[in-house]
Amino acid sequence: MKRPFHATLFLAQLCTGAALADGIQVIPNGDQASMAGSADYFTGAVVVDMLVTPTEYSQVSGAHVTFAPGARTAWHTHPRGQTLIVTSGKGWVQEGSKDKQEIKPGDVVRIAPGVKHWHGATDTNGMRHIALQEAVDGKNVEWLEQVSDDQYTK
């Protein structure tokens, strides 16, 4: 018997990777400890709170990332692109040699596959966003060089 489409079940599947045939899986808030962003991939104070990790059903991962003023990612790319949903504060995102763009709460940033970019807080305001990306062959990001202070302030 074919199941009807239910938006709630679809969202549960998207967020947790659970298949419709498996029902709904609730992952309690706080089940995963907060992590400091690695100095290999971030500049400044960054806290990463994982929301979803890949499963056998879905290769999507997501985190709520908190950047202190001046904090940012290194340059990087994603094989299937990335979506950022800004939840608080004020930040910047930049693609390659293009001008950086301001991002603020409610903004959704869609980054195409393979696009070299960075994102983080402004120099005077912290920023939080939800970052969603999909893995290809178990890899969801290619980290590159750090964003220099000159690149960041330009």
Rank of each mutant, 00 (worst) to 15 (best):
S38P: 00
V52I: 13
A33F: 00
D31P: 00
Q13I: 00
A71H: 03
A12Y: 06
T122S: 13
W143Y: 10
S38H: 06
Y57V: 11
D40G: 06
K100Q: 08
A63V: 03
P28C: 10
Y152V: 13
Y152S: 15
I27K: 05
W143E: 12
K100G: 02
P4G: 05
N140G: 12
E56S: 15
A74L: 03
I130M: 09
H64E: 11
T8I: 08
A19G: 10
M50T: 13
G91K: 01
H119P: 00
A7T: 15
E145I: 04
P105A: 03
G30Y: 08
H119L: 10
M127W: 05
N140E: 14
G23F: 04
H78Y: 10
A18D: 04
I111A: 02
A45W: 08
N125V: 07
L84A: 12
Q59G: 12
H6G: 12
A121R: 02
W92Y: 09
H129I: 02
L14Y: 02
V109Q: 04
A33T: 11
L84T: 04
P79S: 13
K90P: 04
S88L: 07
A112V: 09
C15D: 08
G44K: 07
G126R: 09
P28R: 14
G62P: 01
A68Y: 06
G89M: 06
N125S: 12
T122D: 02
F10S: 14
P69T: 04
E145Q: 11
V86D: 03
P105T: 05
H76Q: 07
R72E: 05
T122R: 02
Q151H: 10
P54C: 13
I103G: 01
G120R: 02
A112K: 10
A68F: 02
N140C: 14
L144M: 15
D49R: 13
S34V: 11
G62H: 00
E95P: 01
R80T: 13
H119Q: 13
G126L: 04
W118G: 01
V93G: 02
T87Y: 04
K154A: 15
T66H: 03
P79Q: 10
Q146V: 06
S148A: 10
T53Q: 14
M35W: 01
L14A: 01
V60A: 11
L144V: 06
T66I: 02
L144A: 10
F67L: 07
Y57S: 15
E56V: 15
P4N: 09
S148L: 09
K154L: 13
A19P: 02
E142I: 09
V26E: 09
K116G: 05
K90C: 11
H64F: 05
R3Q: 07
M1A: 13
D40S: 09
L14H: 02
V52E: 05
K139T: 09
M1F: 04
A63N: 02
V86F: 04
C15T: 11
V65W: 00
H129D: 04
Q13T: 12
S34W: 00
V109D: 05
H129V: 07
G23P: 00
V52S: 15
G44C: 09
I85E: 06
V52Q: 14
